[in-house]
Design a protein around this nucleic acid. Structure first.
Lengths: 337, 337
DNA sequence: CGATGGCGTCGAAGCGCTTCGACGTTCAGC
DNA sequence: GCTGAACGTCGAAGCGCTTCGACGCCATCG
């Protein structure tokens, strides 16, 4: 194990000088700096993380806490997690992965032990049990999602209200007057993740302004549950020509069932989804969709978090503006519906 | 910040005594132990991770390195990652998430800095660039996957050779004589992940013994690429009655296209997939499948890794025995094929 | 009854780093 | 030519913990 002292000796300077070369916290002459840097590479020196954390009270690690339920919207979560890690590295931070399984107490553990400098919470619920602990810890934190009480935290999320509105707008512009919303699984509403309701709220509000009728049905995302929902929808509202799909798992079942039902997409039925871009592109039909910008959310989250660690940022709520991309699954409403 | 010294003073003992109570490395009387433990909870003491790592040269963190490509078999990876984290916690370890993006050098960084005690590598390629670095680091490591050179490492993987064999066996038993294999995307073969070839090898070998003809076609997992492959297959081998799907993303496209093609599953065509259980259960047809046991792989990986950290394990190759579960997508070959 | 040894506890020496104050040097300003 | 700031470097004091050797004590044994 090569230590700071070894480097110092090899370069013929004191240990503190080496430390200052590394941190840049004091001015060091070009010559000395170069000499030290050469010694560092020659000896293959890597600063000891533990010692550094102890002396500086900074670990340069941030915790990323996964959703409490791991069965939900897996692809988005994974994408965010990877992007968070990549972004954190760019700022010199590593990422500690916390599962929901350990429960809210994990927050206290990693913070109180100084293991992490800050925390990112994914998939925050409206009244999340982790928030009080986080608040009391006093550590910088960024939430992905929007709880009911945001004071003390920076929150990053997609503007789902606007996303919902965008979907109706697009359908209304194409002449659709009756639309159905394939919602998230009932469990998602029960645990009050917030985003599902916000989407619906935005959608309904805009629909009313535009004179569009809306029918909302939650859906598990399986073929069976989709078939059930679809049956109900067409019985109750035979004139539905537009679908908005919130639950990304329900997309393929819906398309497949419509096909079986001899309803052509987009000629008879238009479909708009709220989902990651990948999902919109890889299915049987290229979907008109509002993209969930996982990478961008991660970038914002990490950016703000680092700023807070450096002490140069306030709490704020960042709602990313959604964008609707028209692809092959939507078109003009059939004439004379 | 409450420190060891605070606890010691509060309990009226020396710091080392508190430390020994915590670690159990020396005998402490019941009375003292209880007194110390009370002080700990009363003061809300959490040992400082940095100090502990420095003094003991153990961080109690293991690194989990993601695949270099993040676009592949996302659900399995996610499942393994979560399970690794959960298992690690049970042993008192945390998990540091390393993305492929940082490249093989990440291995050196986290090991040389003492940030982590050991490493788990996911999705190891046959000739993986990270292995030499890992070997030279001398740290305990477990690979998920099977490289060409395993010396010095413990490897955990599904026995894909056997998995391939199981698929043919099942189809052969039901009377199928001509089968097609929907393989992984060409990119997977190019990067030599190994598991894809092993599956095919096992499958072909067993097919030969059983007198079954096999046609193998790689597939991207999109509808377009699946449609292309399917066309080729039925042109070249009109009598194919059984399909083995390696690429889990190709499952739905295949089923959907067969449906369009008026080929009933399982009456006309039997489909067997190699995929996680979740995928087998949630599609339009409950799939006969060989399960990829993500959680079990994670459990083994973490178990062996911890054993190696404690210095009580040798290198070994653990190939988990695959199991085929018959569901609704396979049945007897149609008479008079 | 003194030697022996296990048990329970303590003190002190680090682990490798950061950071603060101090100490030359050099150079501009008057 | 003297003062004082700015610059570049060093020494030393920790950061909070683990761990080694030592020490007293009591029970055990010959």
């Amino acid at each position: 194990m090569v230590t700071l002292a070894d480097v110092a000796q090899h370069a013929g300077v004191s240990a503190s000088t080496v430390s200052y070369v590394l941190s840049g916290k004091r001015t060091i002459s070009e010559v000395t700096k170069r000499r030290v840097e050469r010694s560092i590479t020659e000896l293959g020196y890597h600063p000891n993380a533990g010692a550094r954390a102890l002396a500086s009270s900074r670990s340069n690690i941030i915790a990323l806490m996964m959703p409490l339920r791991t069965d939900m919207y897996v692809p988005v979560m994974m994408e965010i997690a990877i992007a968070v890690a990549a972004n954190a590295r760019e700022h010199g931070f590593d990422v500690l992965m916390l599962t929901g399984e350990e429960g809210p107490a994990a927050v206290r553990r990693v913070v109180a032990s100084g293991l992490v400098d800050a925390i990112i919470l994914m998939d925050v619920e409206l009244d999340d049990a982790r928030l009080p602990l986080l608040r009391e810890s006093g550590r910088p934190a960024v939430l992905i999602g929007l709880p009911s009480q945001t004071t003390g935290f920076t929150c990053v999320d997609l503007d789902f209200t606007r996303a919902g509105a965008l979907c109706v707008e697009h359908l209304a512009e194409s002449g659709h007057r009756e639309i159905a919303v394939i919602g998230e699984a009932p469990a998602v509403y029960e645990r009050k993740a917030g985003f599902a309701e916000r989407t619906i709220d935005g959608l309904r509000a805009r629909a009313q302004q535009l004179g569009v009728r809306v029918l909302h049905r939650p859906c598990e995302g399986t073929y069976a549950s989709m078939a059930g929902a679809l049956g109900q929808i067409f019985t109750e509202r035979p004139d539905v020509t537009g679908f908005v799909v919130q639950n990304e798992q329900a997309v393929e079942p819906l398309l497949s069932l419509l096909r079986q039902d001899r309803r052509a997409v987009p000629e008879d039925i238009s479909v708009v989804a709220v989902c990651p871009e990948q999902v919109a592109l890889q299915g049987s039909v290229r979907l008109t969709s509002v993209t969930i910008p996982a990478r961008e959310m991660a970038r914002h989250a990490v950016g703000r978090l680092i700023a807070k660690i450096e002490g140069e940022a306030d709490d704020e709520v960042v709602l990313l503006a959604p964008e609707l991309v028209v692809r092959a699954s939507s078109g003009p409403a059939p004439a004379g519906g």
